[in-house]
């Protein structure tokens, strides 16, 4: 890569102009410019939501959003890493709740203030329809909110843009947890296995396996039957 002669492009980081290679992501461009990042960087793989960023390009009135670790620089970008956006979060005991709309509204009463403006949807770097999941929430449809918000990485960009001061992602995780604990159908085979384990059913077999020497283990391992992959 290094020996490839690249033309550098100008970007503006916190108001200062730097020349960087055009193939870099925003995070790597800032590092190329000499910044050792602490805030606004996390997993560097698009999963942790630490590097949500807003930027402008010279001559273009639009404000753009993205994850700094996944967005490639463009000439004349104006960049700044925004720290995690502060947002209201309720404290609750998931074990003592009921998965009903009432629980939902009493935990986050401000949910009903959503104006349906869609500023959140425009900002979401995961391309979620945030307004739609908030609308599901306002209808009290916990399952739908859980489903529509599932890919949320809790970056906070939606909250940063919301005129109604919502903390969309915090409401959404409550929906998912209520769904997971109370509304998702239970798994009969899991319940059965938990009971067996608690009854000590596999203890002897495991003890026996632990006693086996290497050769015997290798033999049993090689002789395992492998469940066929289901197809279709």
């Amino acid at each position: 890569m290094e020996d490839q002669q690249q033309d550098l492009i100008p970007v503006h980081i916190m108001g200062k102009r730097y020349m960087v290679p055009p193939t870099l992501t925003i995070v790597k461009a800032m590092e190329y410019a000499g910044y050792q990042l602490i805030r606004g960087v996390g997993c560097r793989g698009g999963f942790c939501g630490a590097c949500g960023t807003a930027y402008r390009v010279k001559g273009d009135p639009k404000l753009y959003f993205g994850l700094a670790c996944q967005t490639v620089v463009e000439p004349n970008m104006y960049l700044a890493q925004i720290p995690f956006f502060p947002a209201q979060r309720a404290t609750y005991d998931i074990a003592q709740m009921e998965a009903t709309p009432a629980t939902f509204f009493s935990t986050y009463p401000e949910l009903l203030r959503c104006l349906g403006c869609g500023a959140c949807t425009k900002a979401c770097p995961q391309d979620l329809d945030v307004r739609a999941y908030m609308a599901a929430g306002m209808k009290g449809d916990i399952a739908e909110m859980a489903d529509l918000s599932f890919d949320c990485i809790m970056c906070g960009l939606c909250a940063a843009r919301c005129p109604a001061e919502e903390a969309q992602y915090n409401v959404a995780i409550l929906a998912r947890r209520l769904y997971g604990r109370y509304l998702a159908p239970r798994s009969p085979h899991l319940a059965q296995r938990v009971e067996e384990i608690e009854g000590g059913q596999f203890n002897t077999r495991l003890e026996q396996l632990k006693e086996l020497g290497r050769d015997e283990l290798v033999q049993r391992y090689e002789a395992r039957d492998v469940e066929p992959e289901e197809r279709g």
């Binding site: 997971g180 798994s187 899991l190 384990i197």
Partner: peptide, 25 residues
């Protein structure tokens, strides 16, 4: 041995596993 217990624990904390409509994982 703890594995199924942990799945159960996570589900009780509200984790959403991929499931069939009848609840089968």
């Amino acid at each position: 041995r703890d594995a199924p217990l942990v799945i159960d624990w996570l589900e009780r904390l509200g984790m959403m596993f991929d499931k069939e409509p009848d609840g089968t994982m």
